[in-house]
Simulated assay, not measured.
Amino acid sequence: MSFREDYIFWRLAYFLLMEQDYRLMAISDDRRELWLENTAIKRAPVVRLLRHELDWSNWLQRDIQLTAANGEKIRKRFMRRRLNVVSMYVSKYPPVDDYEHLLKAPYTPLETSQTNVTPILFTQGHEEEAFDQLNTLFQNGARHWHFRDAYEESEVQSLEQLVLTGAVQKEEKDRNLLEYGNPFFTYLFIAVQVAVFLLLEINGGSTNTDTLIRFGAKFNPLILDGEWWRFFTPIFLHIGVLHLLMNTMALYYLGTMVEKIFGRWRFLWIYLFSGFLGSVASFVFTPNLSAGASGAIFGCFGALLFFGFVNRSLFFRTIGMNVIVVIIINLIFGFTVPGIDNSGHIGGLIGGFLAAGVSYVPSQRNWSLQATFFLLSFLLTVFLLWTGYHGGFFRIA
């Protein structure tokens, strides 16, 4: 056996993973089918690589259709308006009957025009055309490749191992981004808000307005009288046991996730700034008394959105869809249910996004972007404080 096609298959995999910075999404049990993604490459954000001996064009046509169906699922998961999938086939020979019409243009399913599949065949006698297509898709293409007529099985195995080791290393790198730190402040904040709740209950009740004001709830008249600390103290107060339970549960799941990604001290900054900006937004947009960690918790959502902003591919491969859906549900809930301080939620969400942009992601730096986010945070804070101390939107209205 020459193992030539097997070598080409793994050389293509090496090219995509190691030279074009793709990530391995899926691999079949027999290691003859790979799905890879790199959303930074617009012409081919998803590549499917298949080692299969082609026989009839009908099989090829059905496989392209199945690839389009799988690509549509990926498009929805990545929340992309359009998705181009490149399906590469490595075979010794092309189909025995007429197949050229399948390669003339990208395939688009009739039921959706949002996912296209571009098939490329690497077969004997047609490799030059395939590599021309490869060079069109990628700036640093493969025009310089030259393959021998035969390869030893050991050469294929060595190249395969190199590719799989590289894929594992990239996966480990991604895991390190998601699990940078061990949560500490999340548990501390949970303990503090439970302790403060018990203190409220002992001293008149957590639903008692006078008690809430006495312990630091956001109360605009006293803020206007100089009690600026009421921008921070509401983060640790809760009105009723249900309010406490919901925010404690949300903090447990969201806080640990954000603290793992950003580390302890970045999380501390994100949480407190988000809570502060949520209180300031509430001060500006509503005269009602308010309290709760909701602004800071929405800040955790904002921090996750920023993580997706700088690590889009990893974000949508892992937590992205769930995070966005939960944010939308919570905002809809806030706008439709009376008595919820939605301005505080939105202020916290924006605050978390900005605070994460200032601190950035561990092991990554972008000083110009961080400076921009710091300036935006400063200007927004000054604007909201000035507006609040000069009447607030609720009074202007």
Rank of each mutant, 00 (worst) to 15 (best):
L134C: 09
T108Q: 03
S91R: 15
K92C: 02
G125L: 01
F147E: 06
E111G: 01
E155L: 05
S91Q: 08
V85I: 11
G125E: 07
V156G: 04
S87K: 13
E152D: 14
Q124A: 05
R80T: 11
F138P: 12
E155I: 08
R81V: 15
Y93A: 09
M79H: 09
N135K: 05
R82L: 05
R81M: 02
L83H: 08
K76E: 14
Q139H: 08
E128M: 07
K104C: 02
N84L: 00
L83W: 07
V156N: 04
Y89K: 14
N116I: 00
P109R: 06
L103P: 01
Y93K: 13
R148S: 09
G141S: 06
F138T: 04
N84M: 02
R80A: 06
D97H: 11
E100Q: 14
N140A: 13
S87W: 05
P119A: 07
V86Q: 02
V96H: 05
R75G: 08
P109H: 05
H146P: 00
V90L: 02
Y99W: 13
L121A: 04
W145D: 03
V85K: 07
V85D: 04
L102P: 03
V85P: 10
H101N: 09
L137F: 07
E127R: 14
Q124T: 15
Q124V: 13
Y89D: 10
P94M: 04
R148C: 01
V117R: 10
K104Y: 05
N116F: 00
Q139E: 04
F122P: 10
Y89F: 11
Q133N: 11
L137W: 06
M88S: 00
I120N: 12
R77V: 08
Q133A: 08
R77Y: 01
R77W: 01
G125C: 08
I74C: 01
K92T: 14
A142E: 05
S91A: 14
A150Q: 09
H101S: 12
S113K: 12
F138Y: 15
A150I: 07
L110F: 09
L137T: 15
P94L: 04
Y107S: 01
T112H: 02
R80P: 02
S113Q: 10
D149Q: 10
S154N: 03
K92N: 11
L103R: 02
P106M: 01
Y89W: 14
S87G: 00
T108R: 07
D98L: 03
Q133E: 06
T136G: 08
V156W: 07
E153N: 13
D149S: 09
D97W: 05
H126N: 15
E155W: 08
K76C: 07
T108L: 04
Q124H: 08
P106L: 01
E111A: 10
Y99Q: 01
D149K: 12
S154D: 11
S154C: 04
D132K: 15
M79Y: 07
V117L: 02
